[in-house]
Design a binder for these strands. Sequence first.
RNA 1: GCCUUGGUGGUGGAACGGCAGACACAGGGGAUUCAAAAUCCCCCGCUCGUAAAGGGCAUGUGGGUUCGAAUCCCACCCAAGGCACCA
Length: 982
Amino acid sequence: MPRYNPKSVEPKWQAYWDQHQTFATSAEPKKDNNGKLYVLDMFPYPSGSGLHVGHPEGYTATDIVCRYSRMKGKHVLHPMGWDAFGLPAEQHAINTGTHPRVTTYENIATFKRQLKSLGFSYDWNREFSTTDPDYFRWTQWIFLKLYDTWYDPTFTWTGPDGLQRTGKGRPIAELPIPEEVTAQGTEAVRRYQDENRLAYQSFAPVNWCPELGTVLANEEVTADGRSDRGNFPVERRPLRQWMLRITAYAERLINELEPLDWPESVKALQRNWIGRSIGAEVDFPLAPRRAGGVNPLSSADLEKDFHLFKSTRSRTGFPTSPDQNVLRVYTTRPDTLFGATYMVIAPEHLLIDELTTDDQKPAVETYRQQAALKSDLDRTDLAKTKTGVFTGSYAINPVNGQPIPIWVADYVLSTYGTGAIMAVPAHDSRDLEFAHAFKLPVVPVVQPPDNSDPIGFTAEGFAINSGEFTGLPTAEVKTKITAWLAESGLGRQAINYRLRDWLFSRQRYWGEPFPLWHELDDHGNPTGLIRTVPLDQLPVVPPDMDDFKPKGTPDPPLSWAPQEWLYKTDTDGVKLVRETNSMPQWAGSCWYYIRFADNKNPDNFIDPELEKYWLPVDLYIGGAEHAVLHLLYSRFWHKVLFDLGYLSRPEPFQKLVNQGMILGEASYFTYAPEKFSGHALNDPVAAGLVSSEFTKFASTDDESNNIYEDTRNGAKLIEVELPKEKIEPRGGKQYIIGTDFQVTIRSEKMSKSRGNVINPDDVVEQYGADALRLYEMFMGPLDATKPWQMNGVEGVYRFLARAWRMITDENLADEVTINPAIEDVPMTEAQERLLHKTIKAVTNDIESLSLNTAISRLMEFTNEFASAQPRPKAAMETFVLLLSPYAPHLAEDLWQTLGHPNSLAYYPWPTFDESKLVESELEIPVQINGKLRAKIKIPATASKEEMEAAAKSDPQIIAQLEGKTIVKTVVVAGKMVNFVVK
RNA sequence: GCCUUGGUGGUGGAACGGCAGACACAGGGGAUUCAAAAUCCCCCGCUCGUAAAGGGCAUGUGGGUUCGAAUCCCACCCAAGGCACCA
C-alpha cells in the first residue's frame, strides 16, 4: 500500500487516541508543571446540516496551539460541547413532529462524528450540551444569583484580583430599605427589592416578532427593524418581560475591556455598542402660564419667576430627580446652551400631559397616537422628514432667561437620556432640519476655526453670542458652563450610555425554564410577587409536551403545559403558577467556559480551586458575528459572579481571535442588458450584447442584483454568471472565450441557494483530514476572509504525500517501512542550518498564530530534504515533530515508521540553537541612490569597511559609478551598501 | 455620516524601514511511460530588448519624511464588516 493513504492512516490514529485517552486532561497539574493553558473554541450550535468548512478553520487553529503547547509541557485544557437550545430544533419539531430533544441529540452525534474525523485533540470527557439537565441546573442557579443581586454604584471595594473598584453587585439582602418603605410592611419591602434586582420584570414595549413567535433583544434586531435570525418583521408591543440590568455594568464593561488582548475591531464594536457619552443634565424651568393657559407670557411675570427659581436653586442645589416645575434634558454640548432656541420631548415623555395646553391638546394627542403606532422601522425611515407638534408651553433657557417653546417630536427617544432635549439648531443637524421644517429660530453660538459659516457647524470652535463665555474654545466653554451650572444648582455633569437593559425572556419551548413562581391571589390572579425555586430543587426541566407551536399570540408554549407542572400550592398555602417564559439561547453560552473546567461537579457550578487554576480562558477563537452579543453577555455574567465572590478574575477571555469567513470558489461574471436575465448563459455573449465598459449604477440589498450602466450608451446592465469553461486567460487577463470581453472574478459567501457550499466530509473522503486541516491553515492569515479553492487542497495533499515519501519506502508493496535513504548520519552544515531555521520559524509562527507561513517553512524544508541522499534520521524526526500539530495523523504514522512505538503527542517540542543559524557567507544588495544595482557575496564577519570595499570592486558597480561622484555611503553591517552619487 | 479592518502578479498570499512577490495554485515547456495517472526537472509581475546581456515601470491615488518606504506621516479613492435621529 505504501502510497500515502489518509483513509487508512487517519482512522487508525483516531482510534489510538481514543483508546489511550491521549488528550484527557487531568484535573491536577502535572509535577513538571509548565503552567496551564485553556484554549477554547466557540462551541457550535449543532444544526441539522452538519459541519461547515468554516467550523474547522478556528478548530484547527486552536488544535495546533494545543498540540504544540502539550509538547512544550503545558497543562492544556481543550474541551468541546454544544450550544443546543434554540429555535431551529424547535422549528424543525413543529414541522416534523419530532421532539426537539431527539433532533438535538441526533445532530450532536453527527457533529461529534465529524469533529472526530478531523482528529481534533479535545478532551471528550468534558463534553456537555447546554440542554443537559445537569448543565442547565447551573444556568438556572446563576439566574437566581442575578435575581438575588442588586448593583450598588457607590460601593468601593478591592476584589480578589487586587484592584480597587467602585460599584459592586451585592446580595439583595444587603439592599438598604428606605424607612417609608419599611413602614408599609413586608410586601412593600419585597416590591422595593424587586425593583432593584439585576433580574427584573418590565412592561415596556418590546420587539415582538410574530413570525418567530417570540420577543427579541435589541441586539437581535437589525437596523431596519427585522429579526437578526430569519429576517422577519419585528413590531413594538408592551409585554411583561424579564430584563437583566446589564446597564449597571456599562462603565466596567467599557473600562475592563482595555487590557484584554482582543482585536481592536471587536473592542471598538463593544465600546460603540455601550456608547458612553459625557455631557450635562440641565434643568429648564417651565415658564408660568396665565390663568387659562394663555400665552405668550408677560415679561415681568417671567422675570420675577425666573429670579425666584434661580435663587431657590442656588440654595437647594441640583435635585437628584427633577421637580415638577422643570424640564430636565441631557446634552453633550452644554457649551451651546446659549443657542438653544426650543425644546423637544419624546412622545412617551411622562410630563407630556402636564406640558400640553388645552388648545394644543387635540394636535398633541393625535401626534402621540401616530407615534405609538409607528414601529422603530417607520421612525427611522422617516428620518428625512422631521415631524412634531408644539405643546403650547414654554421653558426658560437658564443661561439667558429667554422663553423657548417646547415641542413633541419622535426624533427624540424616550429611552435615552431624560427623553427630552434642548434643541440647538445652529449646531446639530437634526435640530436644524426640524427648525427649518417648523420655522424656528436659529442662533449660532460656535464660530468654526476657519471662520466659515457657523450654521450647521457641529464640530469644535470658539463661542460666540454666549455672554461671558464668548471667545473661548469649545472645550473650555464646556467645562466652565458645566461648573457654573453645578454651582448655581441648574445642572450637573452626567454620563449616558446607549446600552439598554437586556431583554432576557423568550416565548419558546426549547430553552431553559425560569426557576420562578408567581404568587396568585384567591381569584387566581397574579399578585406581582415572586417566589424562587429552592436551589436544591433545580433543575426545572421543560415539561413533556407535544404541542409547542406558537399560537400567533405572545403566550409562551409553556402557558399550556400540563397543570401539574404549571401550578402548585406552597407550604404556607399560597397558590403559585410557574413563569412560562423561557431563557434566550445566549443563556447557555454565557458561562459554558466555566463548566468545562469542572463539568461533572454535582455540588457546585465549579470548584473554587479549579476556577482559580483554569480561568480565564487563555485563547478564545470564533466568528466575528459574536463580537457584541455573546461576548458582551458573557462578560456581564462573569462580572456579576465575580462581584458575588464566585470567580476570582474580572474577565472571562484573555485573548480573543476571530477567524475570517471562508467564501465559495471564485465565480466569473460578465455584464449584459437586463432583458437577458433568465436566458441561457451564453445568449448575451453570442448576441454580442455583453459590455466591458460600465459603471456601477445602483446597489440593491441583494448583491447579485446590482445594476450597472453601460458607459457607451447608458443602457442598464446586470451581472451574468459564466461557467468556467467559457473563460480563457490571455495576456494575464480573463476573457470570454473567443471574444475581447473581460470578465470579473469574484467570490461570494457560501450558501445553499448559490450551491457553492463545501462539505468537510467530502473533502475528508477525497483528500483526508490532514489535508483539509492543512489547507484551511495554508489559505492565508487566520483572521482574513478568503475564498475556497479545491486546487489548493490538491496542493497541500501533494505536499503531505511528498513528506510521506521522504520518510517511507514506497517501493515495497504491502508494508510501511522506513525509506532506505534515511540513515543515522550527521547533517551537513547547510542541512543543519536549514533545520534550525525551520524550527525557529515554525515555533515563532505558532506563537503568533501565523500558521500559513509556518506551513510554507515546512514545505521549504521538504523541498530541500526530499531529494537528499542520504537523509539524516535526526532531521527527519525533528521535521515530523514540527509537522505534527498541523497534520497529526500523518505525523504519528511517520513517527512510528521512524521507530517510535508511542504517540508523539507529549514528546518535547524541538528547540533550535541560535549559533547553528549563522551563515558563513552572506549575499547582500548594493544600491546606488537607493536602487538595487548588484548583489555581492561577503563573509558573514565582514566589517563595514570590507563591505564597502567589496561593493566598490564589483564590476557592475564600477560601471555604474563611472563618471559620478560619491556624496555619501551608507553601510549597514551584514545587510546592505548604498552609494549616494551625483 | 461615524467607527474598524483592508487594498501587493492571472489567483491565495510572503516580506524586523534595507534584494518586492517566499510558499502554493493556475499556466507554459521538458523528462519518465506503449499510453495515461502519479512523479521529477525548468520557466513564469508588466514592459523595452532577439528568448541573451542590460534597461525602464511596478505594492489603490497624490504628496511628505528618509541614503533607502509595500512598511512611517498627511490627504484622497475604493472594498468589506459594524453603528446610525443616542442629543
